[in-house]
Amino acid sequence: MSDSLGDGRGNPTATQIRLYERWAQGGAALSLIGEVQVDPRFPEKPGNLVLGPTTNRAAVRELTHRAAIDDAHIWPQLGHAGALAHPPLSMPKGPSPLDVEGLRCEGMSAEEVAALPAQYAEAAAQAKALGFTGVQIHAGHGFLLSQFLSPLFNQRSDAWGGDVRARTRVVVEIVAAVRQQVGPAFPVGIKINTSDQLVGGLTADEGLEVVRILDGTSLDLIEFSGGTYFPGAPSASDSLGGGPYFIDFARRARPLTRKPLVTTGGFKTRDQVVEAVASGVTDAVGLARALVLDPALPARWISAMNEEVDDPSFPRFRDPPPEGITAWYTQRLTAIGEDEEGDYGLSLQEAIAAYQGRDQARVQNWRERFE
């Protein structure tokens, strides 16, 4: 998840460090820090972390030290927002120029695309040096590498555009560059969309072809998710209904690769998780909102495997405004990082005001640091 808990200068805060410590203490096998940027010119939000020359190395080392306890892993989700970069901080650029309602961006030059593998590799090397136990390359949810995979965003006519294999080329190049930098034993994973859930976007059949291509790389793990943050696009929870969203895709993908698979999205009960893993369709399950409601959920589920156990009780919101539910859960992340989730009682409107106000306050800090 994008926790939005950085300090506005690309560095972790005490609240963010405590959040990942809480999840490790709660039994999570692997925590992924969403939206760790490889290029500060294209952030998703001003609360993102950045791995680069200005990184506060001591603060990151404290984060990795406290989050990698009890055999837990902590990985940065290396990303670049591309066309979805936060407008107050960026002149967004994607694979191709776009000018549609709610989204306008320039297209990247061939030189800018060719520079991406080195950017990701340098960030991965820094992650390894600072104590992260692996890295994940973010190629989902409509951010830059997801945009390259999508025919809706990627309308290039050069070597990085065209059929699925050509659109996947830059991702394969990034994986190779990262592997060369971090060595054969350091875990490298990727998160990809099963589909964009948009007319003209990446389809499930194309997503399966991406899996076939990635099976030929040095990746250690492939995570399945879906949907985009394209303005006006429905979220996975809105468009796919209840229950695990992408387990059917994982079932189709399982014969196509021998790499470990993670399926994320819509898991709300222990029975769903146990069934998914026991079936062999997926090797692990990713939890998001469930771990915001109960940061010790994995330990609680495991300790009571042969007993009845209460699953999280998910709140219901009537007619939530755009970003409202995201804001509510994000502000609860803050409460967990401050050990105050027991007193968390923000309404949607209060959460939105706090969420947006915090971002606005950090914009100037980001500009000063990365001008």
Results as ranks from 00 to 15, higher is better:
G243N: 10
T15W: 12
P97Q: 02
R254L: 04
K128F: 08
A129D: 15
T54G: 11
L63P: 01
V182F: 06
G242R: 14
K93F: 01
S239Y: 12
E307Y: 09
F143D: 01
L221K: 08
A327Y: 01
P88V: 07
A177S: 12
D205R: 15
K93Q: 12
G140N: 13
P295C: 01
F224W: 02
G10E: 00
T263R: 09
D70I: 13
G134L: 00
A185I: 13
S218W: 10
E371D: 13
E350D: 10
T264W: 05
E308I: 15
A250Q: 05
G27N: 03
V135Q: 01
S239V: 15
L103M: 01
R252D: 11
L256S: 09
Q356H: 14
V281I: 15
N56M: 04
L19K: 05
D70G: 15
P88S: 04
G216Q: 12
Y329V: 01
D99T: 11
L198C: 09
G216K: 10
P76H: 05
L116Y: 07
G226I: 00
R300E: 13
A124W: 12
R22Y: 01
P315V: 02
G79M: 09
L198N: 06
G286C: 01
R66T: 03
L198F: 06
P12S: 01
G6Q: 06
L240N: 06
S239D: 11
W301T: 07
L49C: 09
S235V: 04
A176Q: 11
L130P: 00
A250I: 10
V363E: 11
A284F: 12
R316H: 14
Q364W: 14
D163M: 09
R156L: 05
Q272I: 04
P184Y: 07
C105W: 05
P53N: 07
S195M: 15
G52C: 01
M91T: 15
I222C: 11
N154F: 05
Q77V: 08
G52L: 04
K268Y: 05
V211Q: 04
H138F: 03
G8S: 05
T54M: 15
A353Y: 09
G34M: 02
Q25I: 13
K93C: 12
A290V: 06
D310W: 06
N56Q: 10
P117M: 04
F153I: 03
V50E: 08
F132C: 10
V172L: 12
V363R: 02
